[in-house]
């Protein structure tokens, strides 16, 4: 059971302010005129582990499953070493480094992909981040908890991405529910830029969780280039569709050869918290 609830959102007032504004579902006939291309969703971090690169393909119909770019040759290298990634599970489009390794500060890493006779590459460097300050959560009127602070959304010097994984599948009372219904993944960002559509972003769903939930928070440092990519992505996703949108545009990329997505190298910090009653 997902403990989501659509409480009065931050900007509930805005539609009311605009007197009788409304948003409704429509059938919109898109004009696809596009050949599917390779999409790279890849990050290696300062943590010593098997790092994963996800290769998919783009699609033209909304809510289609992205194609799995299987059978690619994927290599990550720096000036001294290289790591060949293998697809696992087979035909999944997920490519893992075989040995554990940790990315190092100020070292440039190159991602090399050969897929369907095309060659793609990207370069990225890890920058120093700040230590992680754990999330704040608060008990709400419904007896459940809600995260009420992750980070300042504006940070001119040390931009960061936060991944908060919530798991209450082990909490008494929830053990009979399928585990996937008792997990949530929230992402947040602290960027060196400010945008009106960020400050006045559209209404977003709220996620509630019970006492005993295990919160695993990861913080990733962002290079300027990756921060710019993520800002653009947010402008096209979470910050889009409000009353103060900016002109839409394609995301930048650090990949050559016409691929989409981004290859990033980030310093990682993590913390694990158990929500106290």
């Amino acid at each position: 059971m997902k403990l989501r609830n659509k409480i009065n959102p931050l900007l509930l007032i805005l539609p009311l302010l605009l007197i009788s504004g409304c948003e409704e579902r429509i059938d919109w006939l898109l004009k696809p005129d596009y050949q599917s291309v390779l999409v790279v969703d890849g990050m290696i971090t300062s943590e010593a582990r098997q790092h994963t690169i996800r290769l998919t393909t783009s699609y033209t119909q909304l809510n289609s499953e992205p194609g799995k770019a299987s059978g690619a040759q994927v290599i990550i290298s720096d000036k001294d070493s290289s790591w060949t990634l293998t697809e696992f599970p087979v035909n999944s489009g997920l490519y893992r480094t075989k040995p554990f390794f940790a990315a190092k500060l100020n070292v440039q890493y190159t991602l090399f992909i050969s897929y369907q006779s095309q060659v793609y590459s990207a370069k990225a460097t890890m920058v120093k981040g700040n230590p992680l300050v754990p999330v704040h959560y608060q008990k709400k009127n419904n007896g459940l908890f809600q995260i009420n602070w992750i980070a300042n959304p504006y940070n001119p010097r040390k931009p960061a991405m936060f991944t908060i994984f919530l798991d209450w599948s082990g909490v008494p009372g929830y053990s009979d529910i399928p585990p996937d219904s008792c997990r949530a993944l929230i992402k947040a960002y602290s960027l060196p830029t400010l945008d009106v559509s960020e400050v006045l972003a559209p209404e977003a769903e709220k996620v509630f969780f019970p006492a005993g939930t295990v919160i695993t928070e990861l913080k990733y440092s962002l290079s300027d280039e990756y921060a710019a990519f993520l800002r653009a992505m947010l402008l096209e996703t979470s910050w889009s569709g409000g009353f103060f949108d900016t002109a839409p545009a394609n995301l930048p990329t650090n990949l050559s050869g016409g691929a989409l997505g981004f290859f990033a190298v980030c310093e990682e910090h993590s913390v694990r918290i158990i929500v106290k009653p």
């Binding site: 005129d33 596009y34 599917s36 699609y59 033209t60 992205p66 992402k187 981004f262």
Partner: peptide, 8 residues
Amino acid sequence: IGFFNYNG
């Protein structure tokens, strides 16, 4: 004219 998935 199309979509792709990245980071969820």
